[in-house]
Design a protein around this nucleic acid. Structure first.
Lengths: 136, 136
DNA sequence: GCTACGTTTACGCCGCGTCACGGTGG
DNA sequence: ACCACCGTGACGCGGCGTAAACGTAG
């Protein structure tokens, strides 16, 4: 096999930023607030991200349109992690919390739809004025 | 007629806030940045808003979903004002600027739609996990 | 003179962008 | 020794929320 093991492939922040489409600052910030900490650091202090870390970042990026706060996302990701890792006692409780987040997400979607409707109405209005006022 | 004139009916900030659905702080902030200054002040310093002012606030509130910055809105409102007040020389130029804002608005709508799609996908995913993990 | 409403001033928050200055890695 | 990449502060910003301390209207 490789030089040590196959899954140890890590990436440093610049590469990750390009892959995921987030700025370096943002990725660092996500560590600051404990949202997506890198799995390791190099001897010299470079952040080293595993593929799993990258997936996490992608997840976060997909959550952003829902306007979740960073600590909400942190919480949500923690729940997913817990549910993933073996069987726990509080499975029920965790699943319920996950359901609550799902509900919030759906609520946000509704809000987004309202917002979009509002926005489109306004865009039409503006376009109309731009045309009318030109000929009035 | 009334006690002085019919169109002088003014409202103080609390009433306005309730009518329009914005917080006092927000309305004051809109004055701070020159977006919607009250047409008058009482002797003691109370902000007095005319119906026209209130309309302006409503307009701003409808623009918010488009994520315009406050100074962009200020600019946009100024253009509308200028176009409304009699005939000016630069009518052409102003109308063009208005058109640019319309274009930006339409662009924002597109972004909002993308965002909504993303959000809905994620909401479905979340709901799915909340169900699956419960039975896995 | 009571009460509801208003005023200004100022600091806090979130999610980063943007320096500045110095260390790492290949 | 070079040079691209990375590190840690630290400050700034937009759009308000929020609290403090005090004035106005009726």
């Amino acid at each position: 096999m490789g030089d040590e093991s196959a899954d140890a492939a890590t990436h440093q922040i610049g590469e990750v930023a390009e892959l995921v489409g987030l700025s370096l600052r943002t990725i660092r910030h996500y560590e600051e607030v404990g949202l997506v900490p890198p799995s390791a650091r190099s001897a010299g202090g470079f952040r080293l991200y595993t593929d799993a870390d990258i997936e996490r970042l992608r997840l976060v990026k997909h959550m952003k349109p829902l306007d979740f706060a960073l600590d909400e996302m942190r919480d949500l990701l923690r729940i997913r992690d817990l549910l993933g890792s073996a069987d726990i006692e509080d499975r029920e409780a965790l699943v319920e919390r996950l359901g609550m987040y799902a509900a919030v997400a759906e609520e946000r979607c509704v809000q987004l739809r309202e917002r979009l409707a509002n926005a489109e109405a306004f865009a039409v209005l503006l376009r109309g004025e731009a045309a009318t006022r030109g000929r009035s």
